[in-house]
Design a protein around this nucleic acid. Structure first.
Length: 319
DNA sequence: AAGTTATACAACCGCAACGAC
DNA sequence: TGTCGTTGCGGTTGTATAACT
């Protein structure tokens, strides 16, 4: 049989309206994310399930940070892209407040050009980040280094750290304070986003009892967890300063979600919320052969390693 | 001020993977 | 084990806005 068309003819396409967003958020607030196929039917939205999921994942989901990327985030993306390639979902798992789409866009429109510029020989602020040696490298050398990186990452994985460190990952960082006012386009939408934020806030404090028993829902909600473990983005949209209030909200959000997630994972002692979903995706291929060691990847160690310029500089000697 | 080009980002499309049966 | 339905992911496109001429 042929695949069913993703979307029936007649479904609405193009930008979402605030009204549609509210309908979608209200539905998810009640039923939790997942079972996307049923969303258009149950909500009356003239959107295909994919579109609903995408809208939620990339825009409406709480915990998404918008606005400028910090230097720290840039470094992360560059390192991770070099290490993982265009596996945006995996990369996004290390930037919990960013969506894969956001990172992909940022890479394609900005970072890629900068890296290419650097590779072509011109100097830039990222010169010491990407290749401190600034020496042209052959493909074989690059591959060798990549392999070394992967091996190191694997080693790091096997030396799994405590979940406490994972928690530190989700703490608000310097990025939050640097959120800049959104673009005029976003500002136009801000009032609606605020409304949605209120809905979500309520939802996070009083989450659905059980979104779905399906595994894909678990994955979805864990994605939500990963992202929720940041700031309440929707509420911060258009409000540049987050500060102490933001921390309190974060704390509440985190506790709420932590409790929520722990319901789903309580039956699996090895599967604590400290595990990033995409962290396991990181080594998707390897997982088939070595599930446990990879799946329990601690973020902080890898992050530390990835961002350790000193070490990177030492690694550069491999070239 | 009007037209053109560049940029940013939201959204779409198609494929692959996964789970249920 | 194979088929089918659903979801996730990455590439790409479309559109709004900014910057430039």
């Amino acid at each position: 049989m042929g695949r069913l068309p993703c979307c029936d003819k007649g479904v609405k396409k193009g930008p979402w309206t605030p009204e549609e967003d509210i309908i979608l958020v209200s539905y998810i607030q009640e039923h939790g994310p997942g079972n996307w196929r049923a969303v258009p039917t149950n909500t009356g939205l003239s959107r295909c399930s994919k579109s609903c999921r995408l809208r939620w994942t990339n825009y409406l989901r709480p915990g998404i940070k918008r606005g400028n990327f910090t230097k720290h985030e840039e470094k992360m993306i560059i390192h991770l892209q070099a290490l993982l390639g265009n596996r945006w979902a995996a990369i996004a798992s290390y930037l919990p407040q960013r969506t894969d789409n956001d990172i992909k866009n940022y890479w394609n429109t900005y970072l890629k050009k900068r890296v290419e510029k650097l590779e072509s020989g011109s100097e830039g602020s990222l010169g010491n980040v990407y290749n401190s040696a600034s020496k042209p490298i052959t493909r074989g050398q690059w591959e060798k280094r990549l392999q070394t990186d992967i091996n190191m990452a694997k080693k790091a994985l096997t030396e799994a750290l405590s979940p406490k460190k994972m928690l530190s990952l989700h703490e608000p960082n310097d990025n939050i304070g640097s959120i800049k006012p959104t673009t005029p386009k976003s500002v136009c939408y801000a009032s609606s986003a605020d409304n949605i934020a209120r809905l979500l806030k309520g939802w996070m404090k009083n989450p659905p009892k059980k979104a779905s028993s399906k595994s894909n829902s678990i994955v979805s909600t864990q994605n939500s967890f990963n992202n929720l473990a940041g700031i309440d983005t929707a509420s911060s949209e258009g409000t540049p300063s987050v500060g102490a209030k933001g921390s309190v909200e974060f704390s509440e959000t985190f506790e709420s979600l932590f409790g929520y997630e722990s319901l789903d994972y309580s039956s699996n002692s090895e599967f604590s919320p400290s595990l990033s979903h995409e962290a396991s995706t990181l080594c998707q291929d390897e997982r088939k052969h070595d599930t446990t060691s990879i799946a329990e990847m601690p973020f902080s160690l890898l992050e530390k390693w990835l961002l350790d310029d000193t070490k990177l500089g030492a690694d550069a000697t491999l070239f």
